[in-house]
Design a protein around this nucleic acid. Structure first.
Lengths: 326, 326
DNA sequence: ACGACAAAGTCAAACGTTTATCACATTTAT
DNA sequence: ATAAATGTGATAAACGTTTGACTTTGTCGT
């Protein structure tokens, strides 16, 4: 069927060892042999069987990616960036969308282990300490607390919150609302609130905080409630926990006859290229996606190299404010 | 390090054969033995090594996905849907974004073959007949012609074009423009133009067609040219080749002082949930993503089962018109 | 022409499974 | 009691590769 090492060896008139040596370039070989072997490989369209290689001891070059979903453009962008950077390093990516489903995430985790992935990058927050604690795999998390032994790469949430607060104040808004998607964990995203407060308290502006479950996007009912709340309380500025939520809210407010930003200012979070392209008028806090991807990879690879160490990245990824240009 | 079959056997006090029998449930086994073995597996957190299994002859349960990029929400949505459906079937997905880079796509194709994927689903259009022709892997393409032996699953492009034309006429627009991203291949997406003409010629409305290269999204320069073209020629209705292009154009027109849809009507294509959420006012042609995913999977699996057959799905996936509700 | 030494090549075991074959012990049916 | 069915185990080959240990071949200085 498909050519294997021994077929190449036969065609080239050498032993399998020699062919393997050419491939892994190891041992001493004459240029003539090398050429012959390459010739034979080309002729047979030979591809080493990655499974056999990894069985035998070579690394699988697989990395697993676990994200809650791909609908949120931020996850898409981050996953895609990671995939591209890993490709450059010769690694392949297996994607797993947990869909906020604990059982599915558990199965995926097992599956990834069974497939000998060398490590996992995740931005999920489903499984309790248990599952992530007793896997032997190197894992790195983005902006989420999973377990004590799982390093977290995170952006500067406090600064993001601060910039958002500062922006809303600069528009003259006095009554502010912050939407959050707090899940009760100790994840770094909570710092957004702290930063937001830091900005606003300096000016003794009251802040209301409303929490959403994080099971996906806000439903239209959620949004309706929010709209009436905003109108009833004369809210003038809203800090949303991500761009999609911000835009959904904006659309709903406009439908309710409010003008954005004239009556109410909204600022989002994430600032992915696609959202900026589709909705250039939304002020937002931009996360550095390429930098996030490379720091995640860097930490993961360090962990793969020396497993079972505790390592925390010592720097937060910088965020920035995006304002529509008019 | 990690538990293997023989460890489980030792702990359960049975032979490896028995453990393997339990796992693959074949041969005759007493309930007592089965329980003992399961117990031992649980205790050791045993996971069969998928590479070893597949080496030995079991299928790898891997499917490769090749898409040009993940930025276009349509690709994201389709890839994600495929991933979820395959998960249900016990398959894992390796993603490959070719980034419209032929060399990268070639490498990915090799890599997927090396990793014993059982088949590939792609919506790319980079490599000429050559590469896709001489791979032994089952491949299915979405809406793109790749090679004679690669079956294409496609939506009803002609109908999509027709609906778009009909819609624009219904708004009273008389001077129409169709943007396309024709790459010179014989892909089914060309039928959109045919459908558009069918709708418009019935009413003897002239149509202009402008072509874009498909290397990613339109640049801002492209957009500027388009805007001046539209204004200069008094275009009243535009059919864009996808939603992102439509929205970019809309934003640019608004910036140029035109009102959408009052002065100019624009209709997009794809209608993914995320775009509808972010931009509910854009009329668009909706592709049935879940149906597309399942038909792709169905055809691929048929091909895996009986390789080297020519099979063409006999039905086009139905598209529908989405209109903003106000 | 000889031994030394490097270069080129071969052999066989190993990686973790699955599965066929054969052997044996126990249980059940006759 | 005998035959048949059932449960279990030991052994070994196979999947495609890598690699340590070993052997053969070639070159060179003397």
């Amino acid at each position: 069927m498909v050519a294997k090492l021994s077929d190449v060896a036969a065609l080239a008139g050498v032993s399998v060892t020699t062919v393997s040596r050419v491939i892994n370039n190891y041992g001493s070989l004459s240029q003539k042999t090398i050429n012959k072997v390459h010739e034979a490989m080309r002729e047979l369209h030979y591809q080493p069987n990655a499974m056999a290689r990894s069985l035998q001891g070579k690394s699988s070059q697989f990395i697993g990616l676990i994200f809650p979903n791909m609908e949120n453009p931020f996850f898409t962008a981050l996953a895609s960036e990671i995939e591209q950077q890993l490709f450059e390093l010769g690694y392949k990516v297996i994607i797993a969308t947990s869909a906020n489903n604990v059982e599915k995430e558990r199965q995926y985790l097992q599956m990834l282990a069974a497939n000998q992935v060398e490590g996992i990058i995740t931005s999920s927050h489903n499984l309790g300490i248990g599952e992530y604690q007793n896997t032997f795999l190197p894992i790195v998390s983005y902006d989420r607390y999973l377990a004590d032994n799982v390093p977290i790469v995170s952006e500067d949430n406090e600064q993001g919150g601060y910039l958002a607060g500062e922006y809303l104040l600069s528009t003259g808004a006095k009554r502010l609302l912050m939407l959050s998607d707090d899940d009760g964990s100790e994840s770094p995203t909570h710092q957004r609130y702290a930063g937001f407060l830091r900005a606003t308290q300096q000016n003794s502006i009251p802040v209301v905080r409303q929490n959403y479950s994080l099971q996906g996007f806000a439903t239209s009912k959620d949004i309706d409630n929010m709209v009436s709340y905003i109108i009833k309380n004369g809210i003038e500025g809203v800090f949303a926990y991500n761009d999609v939520a911000a835009i959904q809210l904006e659309n709903a407010l406009q439908k309710a006859g409010k003008r954005v930003p004239e009556d109410i200012n909204i600022i989002g979070y994430d600032g992915t290229p696609i959202v900026r392209r589709l909705h250039p008028n939304l002020p937002t806090i931009v996360q550095p996606i390429a930098a996030a991807a490379s720091q995640l990879i860097e930490v993961l690879f360090a962990l793969i190299k020396t497993p079972r160490t505790t390592m925390t990245p010592d720097s937060l990824l910088p965020v920035s404010l995006y304002l529509p240009k008019d």
